[in-house]
Amino acid sequence: MSSPIRVGVVGAGFFGTMIASACAGHDSFDVVAVADPVADASQRLAEAHSARAYVSFTELVDDDTVDLVVVATPNHLHAEPAVAALLAGKHVFVEKPLGIDEDSVGSILAAARGARGRLIVGHVMRSFPGVRRMVAQARRGDLGEIIEAAGARRRVVHLPDDPGDWWKLDRRRSGGELLHEIHELDLVVWALGEPSEVLSMTGAPLAHGEHMVDSDIVTELRTPSGALGRHSVSTSAHRAEWWFRISGTEASVEADFRAGTVTRYEDGLIAEVTGVFDLPASDESLRESAETAQSYNTGGPGPLWMRTAVACELDEVAAAVRGTSTTLTEHPATAALVAIRANTLAAEAAR
């Protein structure tokens, strides 16, 4: 059995706490260090895992016992610790999105070129077993020539009664809903590859904390082969949808995450139905979650399907560090750059 990968977590907030706990429960990882500028938060999380506590990410990056640096800061603060860790030769796992503007994304990519460590991005839905099988079918040619990939996450999101100055509700720090909820857009570009053209439209502005933001965003892509990508995200849709589809000339496969199913269609007929996860109980948890009001997760371990998803993601992170998987390392920045471009186009159109 391989030695555990020694983890240093930068950021002791919700995601840092969640990922540290998940790593501690995974055979491949050992949490050895935590860094957060809020000393009490750093100390509290470090003590929970018998790890060292730092107030500066530079101290953590300089710690020779750390193999993998997990960047779990708010979205606008990803670049500095990621760049520092890559330049120090560490493996780096950055929570999605990689960055919220071209400069931050570009600086991380520049540091990753030729680095000893691997750049791993937390596009967790790539690690869902059913999604991996969908993409594998497309790449093997089992669907014929790929003509479309599409995805959507549309629901009403209920905000906390008193969100205060919560960074997730400030697009200057989160990048906006398209970047913060980038999962399905990432699946589209993971299936299709680099696009040659990006179009975007936003609308339905609603109050989001202290800010007014567009609650409905539609993005379309074209690839050099002519295949099309379509993506939609909404925080105000009472008819909820959550799905991802790849269509080819011979067949289509579609994951319905609210139903916990992956369905293959041939000539308009259902040819096969399998699960999103390999555990039926996790698929049932998806169905149960679909029946509850949707809100941003602000604490707690989450439902079974979410815990299963994180475990699958950590399997892929460990495989990436050990050089046996590229699921979370290929196209690390494509989705972020597409979303940044889409946000820019939408802002220009709104003027």
Rank of each mutant, 00 (worst) to 15 (best):
residue 218 V to A: 03
residue 179 L to F: 00
residue 222 R to A: 15
residue 203 G to W: 10
residue 203 G to V: 12
residue 214 D to S: 14
residue 231 H to C: 02
residue 227 A to K: 14
residue 222 R to F: 02
residue 254 E to G: 00
residue 248 G to L: 13
residue 228 L to G: 02
residue 238 H to V: 05
residue 235 T to K: 04
residue 165 D to S: 15
residue 196 S to D: 14
residue 204 A to W: 08
residue 248 G to W: 06
residue 214 D to P: 10
residue 194 E to P: 09
residue 216 D to F: 08
residue 199 L to R: 12
residue 181 E to R: 11
residue 193 G to S: 07
residue 208 H to E: 06
residue 174 S to G: 01
residue 193 G to C: 07
residue 202 T to V: 07
residue 254 E to C: 04
residue 206 L to V: 14
residue 234 S to T: 00
residue 190 W to K: 09
residue 158 H to G: 00
residue 231 H to Q: 13
residue 235 T to R: 15
residue 195 P to R: 06
residue 180 H to L: 12
residue 202 T to R: 14
residue 164 G to M: 05
residue 224 P to Y: 05
residue 162 D to Q: 09
residue 254 E to M: 09
residue 165 D to Q: 13
residue 162 D to S: 12
residue 158 H to D: 08
residue 180 H to M: 09
residue 171 R to T: 15
residue 237 A to I: 01
residue 178 L to I: 14
residue 181 E to V: 10
residue 171 R to W: 09
residue 212 M to E: 03
residue 206 L to Q: 10
residue 218 V to L: 09
residue 252 S to W: 09
residue 162 D to L: 03
residue 215 S to F: 03
residue 250 E to G: 12
residue 230 R to G: 15
residue 240 A to Q: 13
residue 245 R to N: 07
residue 224 P to W: 06
residue 178 L to Q: 09
residue 202 T to M: 05
residue 194 E to Y: 03
residue 177 E to P: 00
residue 205 P to R: 14
residue 230 R to D: 02
residue 234 S to A: 12
residue 221 L to R: 08
